Amino acid sequence: MSMGRGRAAVPAALVLCLVLLLHNQVAEAAVYKVGGAGGWNFNTIRWPDAKHFKAGDVLVFKYNPSLHNVVKVNKRGYRSCVTPRGAKVYQTGNDRITLARGRNFFICNFPGHCEAQMKIAITAT
């Protein structure tokens, strides 16, 4: 009988370790307010410089939704300031976006805003 209990304890211990590991990874995600104290606004293009982002980190975009928005775009959309078909548009003024591994591109697609450097490119490892 004790043999059965010993075998059952191993999977339970393994499950516990996996839960703790997963919790630890979630707890390590950083939260960044895009643009710092000024929030998501013009000239935020250099805001990501010298920061080290990881997949799972959260960007918080704070802005006046009657003046701006946030659009998750691809590299081409970022470079050309054109919103690709099907791009996700955020409009709440308090948007939380989790970074994916690799390059992440965001623009404001209000007329002229992206062209005025209201855009950021972030690489998450």
Rank of each mutant, 00 (worst) to 15 (best):
G38P: 02
G35I: 01
V34T: 04
A55V: 02
A27I: 00
K62H: 11
L59G: 07
D49V: 11
L22H: 03
V19K: 02
V60S: 03
V31F: 03
V60P: 00
N41I: 08
L21P: 00
G36S: 12
I45G: 02
P48N: 07
N64E: 11
V34R: 02
K51S: 14
K62C: 06
A29T: 05
K51H: 15
E28A: 15
H52N: 10
A50F: 12
N24A: 12
L21N: 01
K33G: 04
N41V: 09
V26M: 06
Q25I: 10
V19R: 01
V31T: 11
L21F: 12
D49A: 15
L21A: 14
N64H: 04
K33I: 12
L20F: 07
K51T: 08
L59K: 06
G56S: 10
N24I: 00
V58Y: 07
K62L: 13
N43F: 15
I45P: 01
Q25L: 14
A27E: 10
V58I: 15
V19T: 08
V31D: 03
P48A: 10
F61I: 11
V34M: 05
G39S: 07
N43A: 14
A37K: 07
V19P: 01
D57Y: 09
P48G: 08
E28C: 05
V60Q: 09
A55E: 14
A55I: 05
Y32C: 02
A30C: 03
F53M: 10
P65Y: 10
V58L: 15
N64M: 05
V60G: 01
E28W: 06
W47T: 03
N41K: 08
H23Y: 04
W40L: 10
